[in-house]
Structure formats: C-alpha cells, structure tokens
Design a protein around this nucleic acid. Sequence first.
DNA 1: AATCAGCACTCTGAGAAGTAGAGTGCCAAT
DNA 2: ATTGGCACTCTACTTCTCAGAGTGCTGATT
Lengths: 351, 351
Amino acid sequence: MQQDNNNQLEVNERAQHFLKVLIERYIREGQPVGSRTLAKDAGMDLSPATIRNVMSDLEELGLVNSPHTSAGRVPTSSGYRIFVDSLLTIKPLELVEIGQLESQLKTIADPRNLVESASTMLSSMTHMAGVVLMPRHSTIAYRQIEFLPLSGNRVLTILITSEGEVHNKIIETQSGFSPSQLEQAANFLNSQYSGKPLDSIRRLLIGDMEDTQKQMNDLMADAISIANKVFDDSDSSHGDYVLAGQTNLMDFDELSNIENLRTLFDTFAEKSQILHLLDKAMNAEGVQIFIGEESGYDTLGNCSVVTAPYELDNEVAGVLGVIGPTRMAYERVIPIVDITAKLLGSALKHQ
Amino acid sequence: MQQDNNNQLEVNERAQHFLKVLIERYIREGQPVGSRTLAKDAGMDLSPATIRNVMSDLEELGLVNSPHTSAGRVPTSSGYRIFVDSLLTIKPLELVEIGQLESQLKTIADPRNLVESASTMLSSMTHMAGVVLMPRHSTIAYRQIEFLPLSGNRVLTILITSEGEVHNKIIETQSGFSPSQLEQAANFLNSQYSGKPLDSIRRLLIGDMEDTQKQMNDLMADAISIANKVFDDSDSSHGDYVLAGQTNLMDFDELSNIENLRTLFDTFAEKSQILHLLDKAMNAEGVQIFIGEESGYDTLGNCSVVTAPYELDNEVAGVLGVIGPTRMAYERVIPIVDITAKLLGSALKHQ
DNA sequence: AATCAGCACTCTGAGAAGTAGAGTGCCAAT
DNA sequence: ATTGGCACTCTACTTCTCAGAGTGCTGATT
C-alpha cells in the first residue's frame, strides 16, 4: 500500500524511528551508518537485513543517501528537514547555564557590546560561528541632530536616536555654512522632528520640502536639504551584523576543504547574502532552521543556519543565530539559540 | 680567506647574484630551485657543478635551505632578509596606476571610509591581505562633548575631536542628573578644554580634580567626574585597524593547510598581536618588512608583513601594509605599500 | 685556484597491485 | 514480514616499483 506512494509524508512510524536513530548516530559519529550498526542502535531487535529494506525505502524517498555502493547511509537535506521538524527531541539547557549567560549579559550597558557578547556566546557555546543582527525596531525615533562645520563645505553631522545610538556622517554641502547657520538649522530640525519615528523622517522631509519652497524660507530650506543628505542612506548602519568565531568552522572536516571555506568566508565578508538570509528569518516566529541549499545560497552548501528573532518592547528588533555544518547537534544548538535570543532581548530592554 | 669567515656579510658578489636569481625564481615558480635551472637563469655561463659549490656555501651561511637531499634550494628568512635589504630591484608603479588609485581615494570624505578603501586597495592590488591602522596624531584635540540622559543613571556621552571623529560611549553615573545639569556640565567642560590636545586631557582632568575639590563647586566636580569616566579608556577606539581580503591568503599553497590558516585568522580576529606589530612599524622610517618569524609572532610563521607609516600634517598618523606569504613579489608589493601610504596621507589631509 | 664532467647516491611522487573490511542487494526459507 | 546466506562492490590502506630530479664528491682540465 505504501510502497509506491509518492507522498513524502507516507513514512511509517517505524521508518521514521530508524531515520531518527540514523541521523542521531550520524551527527554523533560523522560516519555513514550501516545496517548492522543501526540494527543495534535502534534497539528493536531486528536483523540487519530488515533494516536494509527499510533503508532502501528511505533512500527512494530521498531522505538518506549512500556515498557509494558499500558505504552506510547518510541523511540528505530532506532527511534532516523531517528530523528537525518532527523527530527531534530537544533537551533544554540547565538552569545554571542560563543563569550564567544571563549574568554575563546583564553587566553590559552598551548595545553594541551586548550584541558582540551575544555573538561570542553563541559561537563559544556551539563551537560554530555566531551571528547577531544589530537591533532595530520601529519605535526607534529621531531625537536630536548636530552639525559641525569642517573645512571646505564639509559638515560633520551627528544623529542621535531615542535609543541612544549615535550615527555620524560627513556630508558635503553645496555652499558653505557658518557655524551659527548650522546651529539654527539643527535647532529647526530638532524642533520639527524630534520624537518622530526614524523610518518616517525621509517621507516627512520630502513633504516638507515642497511646503517650504512655497514659503521661501531660506533657513528652513537649507536645513531640510542638509537633512536630506543625512538621511540619504543613514540606514546603511542598520542592517549590519556581528559575526564571531568564524574560524571555528575550519575545524569541521566536512567544510575543511579550502575552496568551500574560501567561498564561505567571502560570503561572510560580503555581508549582503547573510543579511538577506537573516532578514528572512526575522519575520519568522521562533527558532528557524535553514538546512543546506534550503537557504537559497549555494555558498552555504553543506551548512545549516539556526536562527531566532529577538524582541525588544514586544516587537521584533533583530535576529541572531549560528552557522555551522549541516551535521550539527541540533538538539543542543536550538535551545542555545532560543535562549540567547530571549536573553539578548531582555538585556537590551532593561536600559 | 673567506671560506670560514663567520661574518654573514662575507658573501661575495657572485654568490649574492646567484642568491638574487634564486630567490627571484623561487618567488615566481614556488618550487625549490636546482643547480641546472639556476645555471641557465643566472646567465653567467657556468656549469651546474660550479653553481652547486656556491649553493653549498650559501647553505652554510644559512641563506638557503634544502627541503630534502635531492631537492633544489629554497631561501631562508635570512636569505630573504639580504634579498630585500640589498639585492632587490624595485620597479616603480606606472604613473597611470598611481593616478587611478589617487582618484579613487579623492572622492571619499569620511576618514573611516578612506581607511577601508585603502585597505581594500592594498588587498586587491597585491592579492594578499591589506591592513590599515586607524589614523591618530598628536595634533588631534578635544573639540566638544555632549551628554544625553538615558534611563536610570545612564548617560550617553558623545565626544567630538577636532578632526571630526565622533566617539560615543554610555556611562553609568553614581547619581542621576537632570538634563539641564548635564548640559551645564558639558558647557563647563567645553569651555574648559576645547582645543586642548586629546592626549593631555586625562592629565588636566586629574589636576583640575584637586583644584575643584578645594573650591567645592558641585557642578564642576560632577562635570569632571563624568568626564573622567568618558576618558577612562576612550582611547580604546584608537588602536583599531581595518583588514581586507584575508581570504586571499587561502589561495597560497604554502599557507593553505587548515591549521596554519586557523591560527592566522584567529590572530587577525584577536587584533592585539597585529596591533603590536603595527605599532612597531609605525615608528620606522618608510617601508618596513618583517619576514617570517622576524615579526616575533610565530602565528605569522611563513608570512611576511610589509608596512609603511602614513603621515598627516607632517606627522606620522598611522601605518598600513599587507600581509602575505614570505614568498611574495616584494619588488611589486613594496612600491604599492609605499604609494598607498602617501596617497592615504594626502587624502586624509585635504579635508 | 677555479671550473667542470662524470658518477654514485638519495629522496620524492606517482602509479600499480593486492588485500582486508564494510556494506549492500537479492533470494529463498521461515 | 522477517531473516540468514551469499555474491558482489567499493574504499582505504599498504607495499612495491620506478622514473626523475638533484646532490656531493672526485679527479681531470685550464
């Protein structure tokens, strides 16, 4: 009845159990698992021959794979998928451990440092690479701007957000401004926009630009034109992430051929792809797992990425996770990522 | 007469010539150089047997080395040393190339971006890793400080230097301050210290602390105690560097065993050792070359580091360089490092 | 005294061949 | 449905051989 059913879900319970045991074993040992071994591990008192039949079925379903005729079986991406989705037994972290992590983060005031610590924590606990997207949430607001004249027509602009983040940028203005002009412009902008959500500023500026043109107030026009430059891509600082422990990845045999490694590290340095991936993960609820090519980036060939969004004021502010070989101890990594996300969220909050 | 002279300098001219040709060949091909090959390359119409005698001498002096009995010779660190010190013929860069580089840097206003571009330039031109120490010079002065209250007793401090660099830091004060108190404190500090060299501020603060204690002015005392926290290790932002193209190093066979690579990359991530090395290089005049273990860090095992300090207002502001395998094309790398240092200096200046 | 041809010697690296071990797939028996 | 048995396959390791490259030394030549 089930023998030539295409539906992937048609994996009977016993086969699932074998798949589970096989993957657990493979994750532990890193070697293809043969029928004899599996027969013992599964603890169901079946002969290797029987196991072989089941394995054959699993292979047909694309859940396991044989590197060559006379090797054991190795899970495929789909196999891992089913494993993490429905077979995995997660073992929660010890309370003591959580306490330790929490107290580590508690002492840190600066958001940047917090993020870096979280990343390091992830990498050192999992022995893989940790990654944390810089926090950003929609309640973030414009607080204050400062202009300082530099030589020529260059102006140093400093933008401070309601969260106490500081962004600075040097812009080139069309004409020179005196210090007092700049101060007035800043005052105008501060009175006008302070408290407004940051992501709406650009829109407001464009609207106000038209209005002021009618009123022909030079000062305001200048102020807005400068502000425009500031907000031009001031968001570029958002969308950054902190990576830690990438060298840990060199220790895994399955990644440790130079070519793989090079493209992998280049991907990290490039940032855009990782950012994209993290962005996807940000909108998901809770822990998410990308296995191998599932991520959509072949440079992450035999890597998995385990992520979890972290919240701040009951709103998703960012996402963090670890990157490691597909063959990782998910049952341990998942709770680590999960708890770190929660701890980072609350550590960021209590400021 | 010269046969058992211990003095390393006692390498006769012909032997030096052979050493030069050997190293040039080895740098090009990456293979141990044998006597036959060298006989042809040297262009002196000598038989391999003669060459062998000379090689034997060079080996005794520790300038070349044989991987095994029947391989050719390979230069040692000392060999490279002599090579770069006195045998190297540097070929200057094309004027066109320099122009291109210059125009690339000219367009960039922000010092941080400039440094990053310089680093990328170095790495992409040499196909090795580029590194640039963030600029800092003694003429840098305190310009302005701002305090912004955050929740609790936490205060966001923003320090602006005369060069338009912005440093921000969150500090925790002993007691809460009102915004107006903070503003007054900032005003006091700005009136007091603006224009003073940054590296003298700490000393001034300590001196003033005693004075104010006598006068018992609360405001000033508060201001100074806050400022003390700001300057506590605000310098930590100094002493950072920007690294680019580290993955380039994966392409060199001589480095491409995973273990080497891992320790090397860890060294980069650690930063302290590289900083130390760059610090040494900063005080040197012009291009400096560290070959292999000479650097004093065995993690840089078979790497060389070529550095040059760059100036700003006729004063050394930082140092930049490239890191690559000992077997690198020095005659090309040296002028690249040299010219990049000069270009970066002038690009930083005209702000 | 410097140079060189000749020769014996050494070491590497690549290929060939053989072998033990692990594991499979299939078939016939239970 | 499960299983023991068996032929078959593939890998990984070892051993062996051999050509090639290069050296060091010696004794002859200039």
